[in-house]
């Protein structure tokens, strides 16, 4: 957190007609840090994700990655610069094998040009990428399902696959949209460890999460949104103690989060 931030968001604003979905949002994210964005439904969390990865065009503000502007770039360019995301609902490419799914994530790093590939170059790189995709699948715990039909994966495995796919792009910033939602307790524990490991390898992780039990021991810092505006920012402990946050959002959740969170941390 002392180092210069990897990703800086300044005055980010998005209007949908008369509705201010995101209003003058500022935050920084450093390499190796886990930043959680929380807030009630409609607070602007998903819009913020869409803005950062280029799927939604901003109304005003700046998004800066390592000193270079990201705002205004098309989504594939944002991805090429190292910002990857996963989805709340599984978005695996059905009809492609698990390894191929992971390989698509490596697309930005694949050096061969389209014409080079058509002309028959780049076979070595491709073999190496395939090997790496298999290792990533193993890393997220899907090593036994390499050749499985995507349709037979569980919801939680689909989520892990998406993470492996995003990692294949060697992201600098990884956006996880409610990664814990819909997972079984054991999957949840596994995911927790994986995210910790990803951050430890120097990836900046931005995540949206509703499950405070999952989030509080995982996040280094928390940004709280309400009606598109940032109402608080700080460590999980600070956020839990902030009366405005408790009023707007946390309510009873904060009070009993300590015990459950410890279990996750241990996992």
């Amino acid at each position: 957190m002392i180092a210069a931030p990897l990703l800086s968001v300044r005055g980010l604003t998005k209007r949908f007609g008369g509705l201010l979905a995101v209003d003058e949002l500022d935050f920084d994210l450093s390499a190796g840090e886990v930043l959680a964005v929380i807030g009630p439904n409609g607070a602007g969390k998903s819009t913020t994700f869409g803005l950062v990865c280029g799927a939604i065009q901003r109304s005003a503000g700046e998004i800066i990655l390592k000193g270079a502007r990201l705002d205004g770039l098309p989504p594939h360019e944002v991805a090429r610069r190292g910002v990857f995301r996963t989805f709340q609902h599984n978005m695996a490419f059905k009809g492609m094998s698990l390894v191929d799914n992971v390989l698509i994530g490596a697309h930005r790093r694949f050096k061969g040009s389209l014409f080079g590939v058509v002309a028959g170059f780049g076979a070595d790189t491709e073999r190496a990428e395939r090997q790496r995709a298999i290792e990533l699948a193993r890393f997220v715990g899907l090593g036994d399902w390499l050749d499985a039909d995507i349709a037979t994966l569980s919801f939680g495995q689909g989520r892990l696959l998406e993470i492996a796919r995003a990692l294949a792009g060697e992201p600098k910033v990884l956006l996880l949209d409610e990664p814990g939602a819909g997972l079984t307790p054991s999957e949840s524990v596994r995911l927790f460890a994986i995210i910790k490991e990803i951050a430890a390898r120097g990836v900046a992780v931005l995540l949206i999460e509703h499950d405070m039990h999952f989030l509080m021991p995982l996040a280094d810092r928390v940004v709280v949104l309400n009606f598109g505006r940032k109402i608080a920012e700080g460590t999980p402990a600070e956020i839990r103690a902030d009366p405005e946050v408790v009023e707007a959002y946390l309510g009873n959740i904060a009070k009993d989060s300590t015990g459950a969170g410890a279990a996750h941390a241990a996992g």
Partner: peptide, 11 residues
Amino acid sequence: LDRRAAQLMGV
């Protein structure tokens, strides 16, 4: 299979 997701993967 999915234009949007593919784009977000850098395609």
